[in-house]
Simulated assay, not measured.
Amino acid sequence: MNRAEIITTTKRFLSEEFEVDESLILPENNLHSTLDLDSLDYVDLVVVIEENLGFKPTSDDFKAIVTFNDFYDLAEQKIAVA
């Protein structure tokens, strides 16, 4: 899966799961605030990432994610290793 496919897939499943307009999921936007995540939402987020992208992010992974671009970078790394 290349970066463009990661972005397209991510926008689709995040907008469905967290009821956010895809137009708000921009590379430079803050992932946490755009998705309005609370502590319970992170469990859902891990599940949908694993289901849609095939890897399970750790709590340490989330510490490094601020923007959607940070998430796309992580996804590229994790998918390349798998």
Score class of each variant (00 low, 15 high):
Asp21Gly: 14
Val81Gln: 06
Asp41Val: 04
Leu14His: 12
Ala82Ser: 13
Ser33His: 11
Glu50Gly: 08
Leu40Lys: 07
Ile49Lys: 01
Val81Asn: 07
Asp38Tyr: 12
Ile65Glu: 02
Glu16Thr: 07
Leu53Glu: 02
Phe13Ser: 07
Asp36Asn: 14
Asn52Ile: 01
Leu35Tyr: 05
Leu40Pro: 10
Phe13Trp: 03
Tyr72Thr: 03
Val81Ala: 09
Arg3Ala: 09
Thr67Arg: 05
Val81Leu: 04
Asp36Lys: 12
Ala82Val: 05
Ile25Cys: 10
Lys11Asp: 13
Asn69Lys: 07
Ile25Pro: 11
Asp60Cys: 13
Ala80His: 03
Arg12Trp: 14
Asn30His: 15
Glu76Met: 07
Lys78Gln: 05
Lys56His: 05
Lys78Ala: 05
Gly54Lys: 02
Gln77Arg: 10
Lys11Trp: 06
Lys63Ala: 14
Thr8Ala: 15
Glu50Pro: 07
Tyr42Gln: 07
Asp38His: 14
Lys56Asn: 09
His32Ala: 15
His32Leu: 14
Thr10Leu: 08
Glu19Val: 13
Lys78His: 02
Val20Ile: 12
Val43Ile: 06
Asn29Ser: 15
Asp70Glu: 05
Asp44Thr: 14
Asp70Tyr: 01
Asp70Gln: 05
Gln77His: 10
Leu45Glu: 07
Glu76Gly: 12
Phe55Thr: 02
Glu76Trp: 02
Lys56Leu: 06
Ile6Leu: 00
Pro27Phe: 05
Phe62His: 03
Glu16Pro: 11
Ile49Met: 03
Asp21Glu: 14
Asp41Tyr: 04
Ile7Thr: 08
Gln77Cys: 10
Thr34Ser: 14
Ser39Phe: 04
Tyr72Lys: 05
Asp70Val: 02
Val48Asp: 05
Met1Cys: 14
Ile6Met: 00
Asn30Trp: 11
Thr9Tyr: 04
Glu28Lys: 15
Ile49Arg: 01
Val43Thr: 06
Thr9His: 07
Asn2Arg: 08
Ile79Glu: 01
Leu35Cys: 12
Asp60Val: 10
Glu17His: 06
Ser15Glu: 04
Ser59Trp: 03
Asn52Thr: 01
Thr10Cys: 13
Tyr72Leu: 04
Val47Gly: 11
Tyr72Ile: 02
Phe68Met: 03
Asp21Thr: 10
Arg3Lys: 09
Asn52Ser: 07
Phe18Lys: 08
Lys78Tyr: 00
Ile49His: 00
Asp60Ala: 15
Asn2Gln: 08
Arg12Lys: 15
Ile49Tyr: 00
Lys56Ser: 11
Thr10Gln: 09
Ala82Met: 10
Lys78Ile: 00
Asn29Gly: 15
Val46Asp: 00
Glu17Phe: 02
Asp44Trp: 06
Ala80Ile: 01
Leu35Ser: 10
Tyr72Glu: 04
Leu37Asn: 09
Ile25Glu: 04
Arg3Pro: 10
Phe71Ile: 00
Ile49Ser: 03
Asp41Gln: 09
Ala82Lys: 12
Thr58Trp: 00
Val43Arg: 08
Glu17Tyr: 02
Ile25Ser: 09
Leu35Trp: 03
Phe55Lys: 04
Leu53Gly: 07
Leu53Arg: 02
Val43Trp: 04
Thr10Glu: 07
Leu24Phe: 13
Ala82Arg: 11
Thr67Gly: 06
Glu22Pro: 14
Ala4Glu: 11
Asp70Gly: 08
Ser23Thr: 14
Pro27Ala: 12
Arg12His: 15
Val47Arg: 05
Asp60Leu: 13
Ser33Val: 06
Glu16Leu: 09
Phe13Val: 03
Ile7His: 07
